[in-house]
Design a binder for these strands. Structure first.
Lengths: 106, 106
DNA sequence: TCCATATCTCAATATCTCTTGAAATGTTGA
DNA sequence: TCAACATTTCAAGAGATATTGAGATATGGA
């Protein structure tokens, strides 16, 4: 992952509403969730939700796909994984102290 | 790590000059580097460097310590590790596809 | 004490980002 | 074809963030 992509993705996640959206979508898994449900989950108006979902999609944190009347969003695990790998390996140089934190929790 | 700390750290890293500073400091290791050297490395004026270094320190990405006339900065591996762990475990729920990316490169 | 060095702080400005509400778009079922 | 629904787009305003250059602060050596 290139630096500018990592910067876009970091910027996308560095916002409360958007971070919550991503967490929710990761939790929803393969099924994803339609925009309206996401908006309700994070307590945002439809236009605010659309604004933030568009930012997440542009940055590569989520993907979208129309399903009849709704637009279903899913977490982009490839993109998110690439960012974490960038932070871990490129940015932090695979430092052992930091790698240690990646062990499955507890 | 709490959500608001993660947001602060993500925001701190989501900026080209600051991301480069962190990468350089990780590379410098225990020895760290004085502000002037960091400024030269990222091609920033002293006031611009001070502004960004202060932001990184506030967010917990670097630490600082005066050494005679200079102020030496170091990457805060604990803070950076906590962020990566947050992304991996809290935010992405330790998803196997994402955990896979944490194996030492290649 | 005085000077040079290293860094930080401040104010002004420019730019980006977020929120809001209204209006537009696209989809489905009657 | 029309009405209801789901979502996006747009413009305006408020607020946050980044850059610049000048000046302030702190340290060490002559």
């Amino acid at each position: 992952m290139e630096e500018h992509s990592a910067l876009d993705l970091l910027g996308a996640l560095a916002q409360e509403t958007r971070l919550r959206m991503v967490r929710y979508l990761v939790h929803c898994g393969e099924a994803g969730a339609p925009a309206g449900e996401i908006a309700r989950e994070v307590e945002a108006s439809s236009s605010r939700a659309a604004f933030h979902l568009a930012a997440l999609e542009r940055a590569g944190a989520v993907t979208s796909m129309r399903r009849s009347r709704q637009i279903v969003y899913r977490a982009d695990l490839e993109g998110l994984g690439a960012l974490i790998s960038f932070l871990l390996n490129d940015c932090c140089d695979g430092h052992p102290d930091i790698l240690a934190c990646c062990a499955p929790r507890r």
